[in-house]
Computed example of a mutant assay.
Amino acid sequence: MSNYNHVLVAIDFDAEYEKVIQKALEVAPSPEHISLIYVILPSVYIQPYLYGMPTDLISDKERIVSAKARLEEVAGKFGLQVSNTHVECGDVADEIHNFANDKNVDLIVLGTHGRSGIKLLLGSTANAVLHGVKQDVLAVRMHD
């Protein structure tokens, strides 16, 4: 029997999230106890990198709707409840912290694929999530 009643899985669509979800399924009492979260950066974070592109082409609302649809597809693929999918907009670590605290999460599961220095050990996002949370964190190594 698992000690974790509410497991939060942080998804990165650009990484091997399947392995992260599988680990969560191993530790959660059942799929109904798993929530998925995907955090998008606000468009104000990425606009400076889109020099010359009209800013009215970027809509956080549209990006959230699109991410939510994709996250719901992922939930369906793994037998998770669509109602337990959440898309937030903001700083990734802050949004995961806030959600975990607000929803009484017991365990946060996320992938790690750091590349250099301290990031080689954990990864910058995983490291940022780990610091300042009161929940347990399971960092799933993305690469062998």
Rank of each mutant, 00 (worst) to 15 (best):
N98P: 01
G114R: 08
H97F: 06
A28I: 05
L122R: 00
C89A: 11
P48E: 03
N101I: 01
G114I: 11
D102Q: 14
E72H: 00
F13C: 08
L41V: 01
V74N: 04
P48W: 04
A69M: 07
E73S: 11
L122M: 15
E95Q: 09
A28N: 02
N101S: 08
A100C: 02
I58H: 02
I34M: 10
E95C: 14
A139I: 13
E88D: 10
V74A: 09
Y17T: 02
M142I: 15
E72Y: 00
V129K: 07
D56A: 01
L57Y: 03
H143R: 13
L130P: 02
Y38K: 04
S2D: 05
F99D: 13
Y45D: 14
T112G: 15
L71Q: 03
I96A: 08
E62C: 00
V109R: 04
I118N: 13
L8I: 10
A75M: 12
A75K: 08
L50Y: 14
T125C: 03
K19H: 04
H131Q: 14
R70M: 13
I11W: 04
H131K: 09
M142E: 15
V137F: 07
G90M: 07
G123A: 10
K134T: 14
N104H: 08
Y4L: 08
H113Q: 12
L107F: 06
I21G: 04
F13R: 02
S30I: 00
V92H: 03
M53E: 08
G52Q: 09
A139Q: 06
I21C: 10
I58D: 06
L41Q: 12
Q22T: 09
F99T: 11
I108M: 04
S43W: 00
L71K: 09
D136A: 15
N98S: 15
L8M: 12
D94N: 13
V44I: 14
G114M: 13
S2A: 09
G117H: 00
M53P: 00
P48C: 05
Y45S: 12
